[in-house]
Design a protein around this nucleic acid. Structure first.
Lengths: 112, 112
DNA sequence: ACTCCATACCTAAAACTTCTAGGTATTATA
DNA sequence: TATAATACCTAGAAGTTTTAGGTATGGAGT
């Protein structure tokens, strides 16, 4: 389990990252994040759907309804151009902060 | 500049990390985080003091007033035992999430 | 003496976000 | 024919953060 803050901070970059290779629907995103994180990130519908809606309002992702072979309706999300740029920004920011932290945690100052 | 969420997620681990080697006072913490991050983390008094107060209520840090040589009153904070444990937990959590993200960002699956 | 900047702390109220706890509907399984 | 799993949704409560101010002191410059 991961703290609320870390959860909040990783949600957006993770959604953008997971959608980068291609579209996925909400429920599927939840399943794959749980799997990808080995259960560390306990995503739920109640937390994900509002985030997806917000990100769609902000035009980082776009949705489209589809019907699966077995007849279920699913809302597929994919990155917009602006969403791809946002992913780059998020990744850079994450790495910046990670470097600050890991430099302090790492006993060797290392070659930088 | 770093997003609100990332800011929120890094604040607590950073405070715990920065206090690990020894005590510091609030204003000083702000200056060193700005310096350590090369200005990426734009900490302000308005954001830090309420966080310090909360962390003290939660007993991760403990404060003590001191007077500097030049006569200024300063509130020094240091880690409690529970704060040291919390630092370990925070670090582990951060690394877990970082591994999930970096695995997806890194083109090579690498030796894990 | 006086002004201004930096140091050093604080907090109430407003603004924002997130979570809870439900809801609907369909298909698959026991 | 229940029950579980899939798949989506959201209003209101609860929680957090930011804003925008406040106080007080010391030091530097005029």
């Amino acid at each position: 389990m991961v703290s609320k803050n870390l959860m909040a901070a990783s949600t957006k970059p993770l959604i953008l990252t997971i959608l980068a290779p291609g579209e996925m629907y909400g429920y599927q995103i939840i399943q794959s994040v749980i799997e990808l994180s080995g259960g560390t990130l306990e995503w739920s519908e109640g937390m994900l759907y509002p985030v997806l809606h917000k990100m769609e309002r902000e035009k980082f992702i776009r949705s489209q309804w589809k019907i699966s072979e077995n007849g279920r309706r699913r809302k597929y999300y994919k990155l917009t151009e602006s969403g791809k740029e946002e992913l780059d920004k998020e990744r850079e920011q994450w790495m910046k902060v990670h470097k600050v932290l890991s430099k302090m945690w790492d006993p060797s100052p290392a070659y930088d």
